[in-house]
């Protein structure tokens, strides 16, 4: 029986009392997201933030313990910072604040990478994303919208429906996690999970960057070459997009579309 993949429906009928808090949490997250998104009118954001925190806390309460309170504290601190700044990214009115919250979310994910032993990726995320991409975004924002927010930053497309959609997506993913990684499945997976000694020889090896480089330039060598070509093409393409000027004599066919003002 345990080898048979069970459907979500069958699993739900068996475990309905244990997962009763999920729909409540989904509703709280959905309404909270609706309240913190820009809706064209003021008020309700503090209530929405409280609802969101309660809902996410209910979801987090379903997760199992790591077994060591020090790891537990660090993981929840980092995860909380990441999720809260992710929500801040989509709910702030001023795009500059959005970019800054996004930078904080990137720092959070970088720290999470370091927490699970992917130091190189943590540094790469902070340097490439927070250091280069977000800064370029801020440059464009300063160029295009130096006065801060505009009226369209205080409006959204269907905030209630999209917030509920997102909450239902979170619900389904949490239920999938609960059904595939929780309960009896957790014991089976724990038997297959790597031991600390195996991790010490594998991804947690002391020479982390050396082992990453070894894998990257042997098994993934062609992919590295393709990524290099992709970066070159993107560089040329970005320059071409900005530099290219529409010829006014040849562009008379486009005049009807009201292109360039």
């Amino acid at each position: 029986m345990s080898d048979m993949p069970i459907t979500l429906e069958a699993w739900l009928t068996q475990n309905a009392p244990r997962v009763l808090s999920y729909p409540v949490a989904t509703l709280l997250v959905g309404v909270g997201l609706w309240l913190v998104l820009p809706r064209g009118r003021r008020g309700g954001r503090a209530v929405g933030a409280v609802l969101l925190l309660v809902g996410l806390g209910m979801l987090a309460a379903r997760l199992p313990m790591l077994g060591d309170w020090k790891y537990e504290t660090v993981l929840w601190l980092l995860g909380g910072i990441t999720v809260v700044s992710g929500i801040g990214t989509i709910s702030m009115r001023s795009p500059v604040y959005c970019a800054l919250w996004f930078a904080l979310a990137l720092l959070g994910t970088g720290a999470l990478f370091m927490f699970v032993g992917a130091q190189f990726l943590g540094i790469a995320t902070v340097v490439v994303y927070a250091g280069a991409i977000v800064v370029t975004f801020l440059f464009v924002l300063m160029l295009a919208q130096p006065e801060g927010q505009d009226f369209y930053d205080r409006l959204s497309w269907e905030p209630l429906l999209s917030a509920l959609t997102g909450a239902v997506m979170i619900l389904l993913l949490s239920l999938a996690l609960e059904s595939s990684l929780g309960g009896t499945a957790a014991a089976e997976l724990a038997a297959k999970s790597p031991t600390p000694q195996a991790l010490e020889k594998g991804i947690l090896a002391p020479q982390h960057v050396a082992s990453i480089g070894g894998v990257l330039f042997s098994k993934y060598l062609i992919a590295v070459q393709v990524a290099g070509v992709l970066l070159l093409v993107a560089l040329v393409g970005a320059s071409a997009i900005v530099v290219y000027q529409r010829n006014p004599a040849a562009g008379s066919a486009d005049a009807g579309q009201g292109g360039r003002s």
């Binding site: 979801l59 987090a60 997760l63 199992p64 313990m65 790591l66 077994g67 790891y71 993981l75 995860g79 999470l112 699970v116 993913l173 949490s174 996690l177 990684l181 929780g182 957790a186 997976l189 724990a190 999970s193 790597p194």
Partner: peptide, 11 residues
């Protein structure tokens, strides 16, 4: 606990 870590990060 590796399974708990996996599940928390996936969440």
């Amino acid at each position: 606990n590796e399974v708990a870590l996996l599940r928390s990060l996936l969440a």
